[in-house]
């Protein structure tokens, strides 16, 4: 049986990708942030996954406004790297896991989650910056990846309850797969940040830390937090944090906190990072 063995949460700031690609991770500005991921790189080398389901959002890199899926799943064998306006990041292509992805997409649709099925998808910093943070700069990514893009750009975004329920359905679907796989699920984006308007630069670290505590200990209540609160307290782009609820939903009732890290700022963003494992593991 396939099993979800860990959940990883991390912000996905584009400037972090630039820092990695230009070899500036040890600069004074960046070093304190990257230091927070040193533990994680060792941990993931010792606790590898066969497949990582990476919940992320595209940033007008692959999806325009002609088609805007609320929940989608990449079921292809590989995913190329987007050109986000300055050429594609010089990183390895992302390999998919078509067998598990088709099983998951089908299972979720049968469970009433109306997934958009993506036989073609290029991935942007939302997915690739987390890979760089966890794996550094390998010649080939050590895990296969199932991209799960969520619309968090256009309001209405899916509700927190829906995201949390989707995570629970992913857990069930993974466990029903006829194959022996270790699966990680990653929730990316956040934490507090606002990159538009006169209120740009908003950071709310106490709120971010409380969100992490609630995600770990009381997600059943956290799922009902209205989007308006994310926007007011964590900035207009802070609503990305609903994607962490999908990750959390896939881990079951109780979790172990393996690692936690916060850093302000990376560019305009409060960086948050968690490694969680299911307690029944």
């Amino acid at each position: 049986m396939a099993k979800i063995t860990a959940g990883i949460a991390t912000s996905h700031v584009p400037a972090v990708g630039h820092a990695v690609d230009s070899g500036r991770t040890q600069d004074d500005y960046w070093k304190p942030m990257f230091d927070g991921y040193e533990f994680s790189k060792k941990w993931i080398a010792e606790n590898p996954a066969d497949v990582a389901i990476i919940v992320y959002n595209d940033h007008a890199s692959y999806f325009g406004m002609d088609i805007m899926p609320t929940f989608a799943m990449g079921i292809a064998e590989k995913f190329n790297i987007c050109d986000e306006g300055y050429g594609p990041r010089p990183i390895p292509v992302v390999e998919g896991h078509a067998e598990l992805a088709t099983h998951l997409a089908a299972s979720l649709i049968l469970d009433d989650f109306d997934m958009t099925v993506l036989n073609k998808l290029d991935v942007d910093h939302g997915l690739t910056v987390p890979l760089s943070l966890m794996y550094g700069t390998p010649d080939k990514w050590p895990t296969k990846v199932i991209p799960l893009p969520v619309n968090v750009v256009m309001n209405p975004q899916p509700s927190g309850e829906r995201c949390f329920s989707l995570g629970k359905a992913i857990k069930d679907a993974v466990e029903q797969f006829d194959g022996d796989l270790k699966v990680h699920i990653w929730g990316t984006g956040g934490m507090s940040h606002q990159i538009q308007g006169a209120r740009a630069g908003l950071i709310n670290l106490p709120w971010d830390i409380q969100f992490m505590d609630d995600l770990i200990n009381d997600p059943e209540t956290l799922q009902y937090k209205p989007h308006l609160e994310y926007m007011v307290e964590a900035g207009s782009e802070g609503v990305e944090l609903i994607m962490w609820l999908i990750m959390r939903g896939a881990l079951g009732d109780k979790v172990n906190e393996v690692h936690r890290f916060n850093h302000v700022p990376a560019s305009n963003t409060s960086v948050g990072h968690l490694i969680l494992t299911p307690k029944d593991n």
Partner: peptide, 24 residues
């Protein structure tokens, strides 16, 4: 939307911080 608009400033070599600060 700012993610779309980022294509304009990214093409000119500007970061989010540089572009976003102009709105404050």
């Amino acid at each position: 939307n700012v993610y779309f608009l980022s294509k304009i400033f990214a093409a000119e070599g500007l970061s989010y911080v540089q572009a976003v600060s102009t709105m404050t």
